[in-house]
Lab assay of single mutants.
Amino acid sequence: MQIFVKTLTGKTITLEVEPSDTIENVKAKIQDKEGIPPDQQRLIFAGKQLEDGRTLSDYNIQKESTLHLVLR
């Protein structure tokens, strides 16, 4: 499924993921596309910060959901 990741600069990254993918996994995909190390990434969905060990389905993230990427 496709999800979108919006950065603070207003750029939107499109990722191909599975509901069973972990947040860690998603961060690795963002690193592949954008070169941002996962340890600098914070992903936010519905106002919650997403934890590395959880999966997209844990957070009920469905196709075409938009996550927000904050760098630390």
Rank of each mutant, 00 (worst) to 15 (best):
T22L: 15
D21Y: 06
Q41H: 15
T9F: 04
S65H: 12
S20Y: 14
K27W: 08
E16Y: 14
S65D: 15
L8M: 11
D32N: 07
E64Q: 04
F4P: 01
T7A: 15
F4S: 09
V5K: 00
T22M: 09
T55D: 06
T7V: 11
P19S: 14
L71R: 07
M1S: 09
T22I: 11
Q49N: 13
G10C: 03
P37M: 12
A46Q: 06
Q49I: 08
N60A: 09
A46H: 03
T55E: 06
I44V: 06
T55W: 10
V17H: 04
S20W: 08
R42L: 07
D58E: 14
E18T: 13
V26M: 11
N60H: 13
I61A: 02
L15S: 00
I61N: 00
V70S: 14
K29P: 00
G53C: 02
T14F: 07
N25A: 12
L69D: 00
I30G: 01
A28D: 08
I36L: 13
E64S: 04
R42W: 11
E64T: 04
F45D: 04
K48H: 14
M1C: 01
K29F: 09
A28P: 01
F45L: 15
G47H: 10
L69R: 01
L69C: 02
D21H: 10
D32F: 10
I3L: 13
V17N: 02
P38S: 10
K33H: 12
Q41P: 02
A46C: 03
Q2G: 05
A28K: 02
L15D: 00
I23F: 02
F4K: 04
T14V: 08
R72Q: 14
V17E: 01
V17G: 15
K6G: 14
Q62P: 10
F45R: 03
S65L: 07
T66S: 06
T7M: 08
E51W: 02
D21K: 10
D58M: 06
Q49S: 11
E51V: 03
I23G: 02
F45V: 06
K6R: 13
K63M: 07
E64P: 03
I23D: 01
G10I: 06
I13V: 08
D58W: 10
T9G: 11
D52F: 12
K11M: 13
T12G: 10
S57L: 05
S20E: 07
Q40V: 08
K6L: 15
A46V: 11
R42H: 08
K33C: 02
Y59G: 01
L50V: 06
K33Q: 05
P19I: 09
I3A: 01
P38D: 15
V5Y: 03
I23H: 03
V17R: 00
K33W: 11
T66P: 05
R54V: 08
V26G: 00
E51Y: 12
I23P: 09
E34V: 09
R54D: 05
T7I: 13
S57I: 08
L69W: 03
P19C: 02
R72L: 06
K63G: 13
N25T: 07
T14G: 03
I3W: 00
Y59R: 01
K33T: 11
Q40K: 03
R54A: 10
I61G: 01
S20D: 12
V5Q: 00
P37L: 11
T22S: 03
D39F: 13
F4R: 04
Q2Y: 11
T7L: 11
I13D: 01
T55K: 08
G10Y: 03
M1N: 06
Q49G: 12
Q2F: 07
F4G: 05
Q49W: 05
Q62N: 09
I36R: 06
D39M: 04
P38Y: 05
Q40S: 06
G53W: 09
D58Y: 13
F4V: 09
I13T: 04
V5L: 02
T22F: 14
Q49P: 14
G35P: 03
G35R: 06
R42A: 13
K63R: 07
R54N: 13
L15Q: 01
G47V: 03
K48I: 15
E16A: 08
L8H: 06
L67W: 02
K11P: 11
E64M: 11
R72F: 07
K27P: 00
P37S: 11
S57R: 08
N60F: 11
Y59D: 02
T22A: 12
V70W: 04
T9K: 12
Y59M: 08
